[in-house]
Design a protein around this nucleic acid. Structure first.
Lengths: 237, 237
DNA sequence: CGAGCCATTGACCTAAGTCAAAATAAGTGG
DNA sequence: CCACTTATTTTGACTTAGGTCAATGGCTCG
């Protein structure tokens, strides 16, 4: 009936996009992988390209395999909020709504794996184990959303930035790009709109962190973490 | 195999707690309901009682049937964030973590329905349709978390308060308690910690809204919406 | 080489936080 | 049931963190 856990092996890479689907440490059976693959389509975006537009009907979900995406929400009066960034290995599109809640835009040249929502849903009911993984993923997202709410509600700009940098570093580490040097695929404005700040404040706080010897800024789009412990203390304090 | 949709009737109330599980408009089969019920236990909390403590192992999930809960996160240095409130009909406990991420406390006398997480997981794999509902619920939560992040990041205190009141009104309406009079089951401090403000600011903004004729404040724990349209304009602007 | 974009820095200002006190509301015990 | 105590809310005066506006500097790309 349901594929028993014994049947499940370590998940292989997707035939199309060469990335481990849904979660790095996830476990899917061979059959589940095959089913997933058959529903997948490869897609490549040029820098700045718009993948989906806020308000349009939601047709696909995605797995990022290269590059990065930003999820942007624009309010009627022009206020901008970057809900999040999707890096390689991330799953994009979990939503209960009929319409897209965000613009999704490519930050650099970006490669992704596309699934139709209906196909996904069909696969979900067909392979309960897969749906379980999806649920797990949704719950993890929910946890990190709560984390981010705490940051937005109760941390000052410097703390938010420290938190943001540490989160990025951890995500890049998990994606296999280890090392204390973080790649920022987004401009300052996106960081600002993600953290509920202004560009000026982001800039000021970055230099403040540098002056305190916690980070180095070898280039606009690169941050070296010099004092991990110090950053963590800051964020927690 | 999986109960086909044709098999599903409108979801009845839980045998134990007399509330429609998981979602008001959800649809479960008779068998699924029976399975859910068998895993459920009733629980009543006195005002202020602590249901779960941040950091303890996560053992249960809950459905609120009467009263209200608050989900509180306390950081090391004492900063407090109310991640959310659970009202009758709400589902509490969707998380990917091993440990509880929040304190959960009763706001008044509160009644709820308890499920073991392992039982829930077992039911999930057994009844894919049920798990689908859970996933749906998680996605909806995720959407509203994003909504709240927008509020925290980009709205001023008055707008946040308007948004909060409208959300509460809508939730109470969906729970069957219609009317323009909102019941606030929580003290000002909780509202403040939910919206990333101080008690003083919440108080000031409430009186400001009253002075502008948008709301009335017949009692500390009651708000009448006088100008729905006006509030909505405020929040969107 | 020049134009345009983005990041940084500085000067200034305002919205919201802090501190303090008064006014209500909610408990408590006689 | 009422007086008294304690907690919560509201209001006011003041302070400051971070936003706004404006100018400068540094890349990138045609």
């Amino acid at each position: 009936m349901n594929p028993p856990p014994e049947d499940a092996g370590p998940m292989g890479p997707c035939l199309h996009c060469q990335v481990r689907h849904l979660a790095v440490c996830s476990v899917l059976s061979r059959e589940e992988m095959r089913a997933l693959d058959s529903a997948a389509a490869l897609q490549v975006l040029a820098p700045g390209a718009v993948l989906v537009r806020q308000g349009e009907p939601r047709r696909h979900v995605y797995t990022v395999t290269r590059g990065a995406l930003r999820l942007v929400r624009l309010s009627a009066d022009g206020r901008r909020q970057v809900a999040g960034f999707a890096l390689p290995g991330d799953f994009v599109g979990l939503s209960g709504a009929e319409l897209n809640q965000h613009d999704i835009e490519a930050l650099g040249e970006t490669e992704l794996c596309r699934f139709g929502v209906d196909a996904m849903q069909r696969l979900g009911t067909q392979y309960p184990h897969l749906q379980g993984k999806l649920l797990e993923r949704a719950c993890t997202e929910l946890d990190s959303a709560h984390e981010r709410m705490m940051a937005l509600a109760r941390m000052n700009p410097t703390e938010r930035l420290a938190d943001f940098l540490l989160t990025l570093a951890e995500r890049q580490a998990r994606a296999g790009i280890a090392g204390p040097s973080i790649d920022l695929p987004m401009p300052r404005a996106d960081i600002a709109d993600h953290l509920g700040l202004t560009v000026e404040t982001v800039s000021r706080c970055l230099t403040a962190l540098r002056n305190r010897g916690l980070i180095a800024l070898p280039g606009t789009y690169r941050v070296d973490i010099l004092d991990l412990r110090g950053l963590e203390t800051l964020k927690a304090a």
